[in-house]
Amino acid sequence: MKKSTSLSNILQLVIPEEKLHPILDELNYVDVGRKFTVYDLFLFLGEASFQQWNGYRDGEQRMAHSGLRSVDHSTLSKKAKDVPYELFKRLMNVMIGLCNRKTKRVLGIPKELLIVDSTTISVGLGRLPWTPIKGKKAGVKLHVGIIGDRTELHKVTETTGKEHDLNSCKDLLDSRYILVADRAYGKHKLFDLYQEQENRQYFVIRLHNNTTFTNPIPRNRKRPFSGSVEQDLTCQLGKNKALSENLFRVVILKDPKGNPVVLATNLHWYSPEGIAAIYKKRWQIEVFFRWIKQHLNIPKLFGTTENAVYGQLYVALLVYVLLKLLFEQGSATVHFSAKLTFADFDRLFTLQRLPLEWRIYLTNAVNLITRI
């Protein structure tokens, strides 16, 4: 194959077609397509996400120009409806395993953060009648865990829009990291489970402001609080049936608007300012959601079935993981005078206007990736 810096060519080198075959066998899916295969659909969804195509009809006009096998929009739609989305979910996990730095088992206290949250992609009820949300709206959720500071995608699962975030949290947990989450994940009985399981799950999770503190004990402190921290105490959480069995630490601070932010944690040896700093990093996942919605076409769902919708979303996330790796390795390779921001790299790559040094890097980048 002639070397190219187009996304589909890089995808073919990083995830060749033979990687799909064992997954399809496990899923008991037989690809009967000849003119347009499952692998062709995978490449189409990758380019459609990267170039932000408007749908199957728009993609039909652009496929040939992007080096993809051309078919009509009805063939695209039928194939996307037919192929189990679990295939693309597994391919995304293959890419995560290939691209993310390998995490060794942490002995002692983990230092890195696992930031967890969900985002909803909503449309009119007529398009997705199988997943109503409220009124005339329908939608699906992506429940995501990212590694803080590195903003690497770690785990993802999917649900319908009505599913509570708490129900998917167990699929995102990893005791090698400190879990950081918002109020939707603040169930007291789960805190007991995190504390008592064999590999303790450390966490910093925001509580509802009306949470009851049972038998609170202020923590000793020789110096006044700094920053936005106002209180630091140890207590049981909740009352009656919702009362936690274990004691947890509660740190209360003020947000920039003066509203209280109540944090629960089992990190008893951190300073309260350190706990506050950990929680403030939760904002990184909001930035991540905003970026993928703006740059990977995620709000523009092409199909109307589970396979079509979730398949498109998982390929888009796979593209994010690949772009992140290409950018980080490129930043470490090119001369400092050619450095780019991630946003500029994505924009110029999409327009095929990357500086020469970056284009040279990309022609050799796949060899670097496959040696990881």
Results as ranks from 00 to 15, higher is better:
residue 253 L to Q: 07
residue 254 K to F: 02
residue 235 C to S: 05
residue 237 L to N: 02
residue 248 F to I: 01
residue 242 A to K: 08
residue 245 E to P: 04
residue 231 Q to W: 04
residue 238 G to Y: 00
residue 234 T to H: 09
residue 227 G to P: 12
residue 252 I to H: 02
residue 252 I to P: 00
residue 240 N to G: 09
residue 250 V to E: 01
residue 267 L to D: 08
residue 266 N to H: 01
residue 232 D to N: 08
residue 231 Q to R: 15
residue 268 H to S: 02
residue 251 V to M: 08
residue 265 T to C: 04
residue 261 V to A: 12
residue 245 E to S: 12
residue 257 K to D: 15
residue 266 N to Q: 04
residue 260 P to S: 15
residue 261 V to S: 10
residue 224 P to R: 13
residue 226 S to I: 15
residue 266 N to T: 09
residue 263 L to T: 05
residue 255 D to H: 11
residue 253 L to D: 00
residue 246 N to H: 13
residue 247 L to S: 05
residue 262 V to Q: 06
residue 265 T to M: 01
residue 242 A to D: 05
residue 234 T to D: 11
residue 259 N to K: 15
residue 245 E to D: 10
residue 232 D to Y: 06
residue 224 P to I: 14
residue 233 L to A: 08
residue 239 K to I: 05
residue 268 H to D: 07
residue 234 T to S: 13
residue 229 V to R: 03
residue 267 L to W: 01
residue 242 A to E: 07
residue 260 P to C: 10
residue 231 Q to T: 14
residue 235 C to K: 04
residue 241 K to D: 08
residue 267 L to A: 10
residue 256 P to C: 10
residue 246 N to Y: 12
residue 247 L to P: 04
residue 267 L to V: 00
residue 262 V to G: 00
residue 258 G to H: 13
residue 269 W to L: 05
residue 242 A to L: 00
residue 268 H to L: 12
residue 227 G to T: 04
residue 224 P to F: 13
residue 234 T to M: 14
residue 268 H to F: 12
residue 264 A to E: 04
residue 256 P to L: 10
residue 235 C to E: 05
residue 241 K to Q: 06
residue 267 L to R: 11
residue 256 P to Y: 11
residue 246 N to T: 04
residue 259 N to L: 13
residue 268 H to Y: 05
residue 259 N to M: 11
residue 258 G to C: 09
residue 229 V to C: 09
residue 238 G to E: 07
residue 250 V to K: 00
residue 249 R to A: 03
residue 225 F to P: 03
residue 264 A to Q: 06
residue 239 K to H: 10
residue 262 V to F: 08
residue 250 V to L: 12
residue 269 W to G: 00
